[in-house]
């Protein structure tokens, strides 16, 4: 049975419950789990601990590059483990903890296999290719399994691959632009595209409607766009870059999608925070610092005003929701 812990704590903090009645109140609020709940929790805990530990143990083993065993033995170890994980996935009921655990283990083992391949044959490939190919190979699994966590892992691998690519190629957009362009735009493009696709597809697919997933993607995209806008302000390239207009469009899109079309306080809170940070940076960039401290007071008043205004507006939206 669901617990009412938050509600009970709220009442205790307001001193609405006498000390003598606390034990009874705890039982009514279902604070302590029933034996069946304990059984399920420990079952899941041991399953995930086991799967992740086994997957990581293979990765650590491959990374050690133990010369005592031959390369074929190493490949056999990883490939047999991978096949076993896939068999477990196939044999278990889909969308259960056991099948999801097996899939995550298989994903980790696939990465270990690819690292072993690169380590053994010294292909000369760049590190970004490992993560890109890893993401490529698990794409069919993600499409078939419809497992949200696996999709997030896939997105993380793409971003890591892109980051490593930008490490090697300092001007990754040289194919399209003659002058050097901030690689951050590549990340913004990738994650904005993913956000748009996920939001659109989730409208017609139940398994994609998990709020935490779209919020994680929105958080990453919003952080990148805000960072880009801040860099444009700090580097004094406000006029010569699209960073601020793109930031404005992104905020507008968030407002339209999560205030007009539907309501999501998390998204609106993130947008408010982004607005506060960028506007503060704009004001800070505009004032001249004379050293007597008055400018700091001005900026702090602006920040306090923006923060209070955001809180008031979000409270109104929350009341509307309720």
């Amino acid at each position: 049975m669901e617990s009412s812990r938050g509600e009970l704590v709220n009442l205790i903090e307001q001193e609405k419950i006498a000390k003598d009645n606390i034990k009874q109140a705890i039982n009514i609020a279902n604070i302590h789990p029933a034996p069946k709940a304990w059984f399920d929790f420990i079952n899941q805990l041991l399953l995930w601990l086991g799967c992740v530990s086994l997957g990581l143990s293979v990765i650590f083993f491959i990374a050690h590059n133990w010369s005592e065993i031959g390369r074929f033995a190493k490949f056999a170890l990883v490939e047999i483990s991978l096949i076993f994980a896939i068999i477990v996935y196939v044999k278990t009921k889909p969308q259960t903890n056991a099948s999801n655990g097996a899939l995550i283990t298989a994903t980790l083992l696939l990465g270990a296999l690819m690292a072993l391949f690169g380590q053994t044959y010294q292909t000369g490939a760049d590190p970004w290719q490992l993560f890109f190919n890893w993401a490529l190979f698990i794409l069919p699994w993600a499409l078939i399994a419809r497992f949200t966590s696996l999709w997030i892992i896939w997105l993380a691998l793409l971003n890591i691959a892109l980051a490593l690519y930008c490490d090697v190629n300092t001007n990754p957009l040289s194919l399209f632009f003659t002058n050097k362009v901030n690689p951050l735009w590549l990340f913004i493009g990738l994650n904005s595209f993913i956000f748009a696709c996920w939001h659109t597809l989730s409208l017609s697919r139940t398994w994609m409607k998990k709020t935490w997933a779209i919020r994680v993607i929105a958080l990453v995209t919003g952080t990148l766009i805000t960072e880009n806008a801040l860099l444009a302000i700090v580097d004094d390239y406000i006029i010569h870059t699209l960073a601020l207009p793109v930031w404005g469009v992104f905020l507008g899109a968030i407002y339209w999608l999560y205030r007009k079309v539907s309501i999501d306080l998390f998204m609106l809170s993130g947008a408010c925070l982004s607005g506060i940070v960028v506007l503060t940076a704009l004001v800070g960039n505009g004032v001249i610092f004379s050293g007597d401290g008055a400018e700091y007071l001005l900026i702090s008043i602006i920040v306090i005003g923006l923060g209070s205004g955001s809180a008031f507006w979000l409270k109104q939206v929350q009341q509307e929701m309720n």
Partner: peptide
């Protein structure tokens, strides 16, 4: 307020406080 609204207020509170302290 949900935790993320509190987090927004916390971060903007800290941002404002840093400038007050600088003053």
């Amino acid at each position: 307020s949900p935790w993320y609204v509190k987090a927004l207020l916390a971060m903007s509170g800290w941002l404002g406080a840093i400038f007050i302290l600088a003053f």
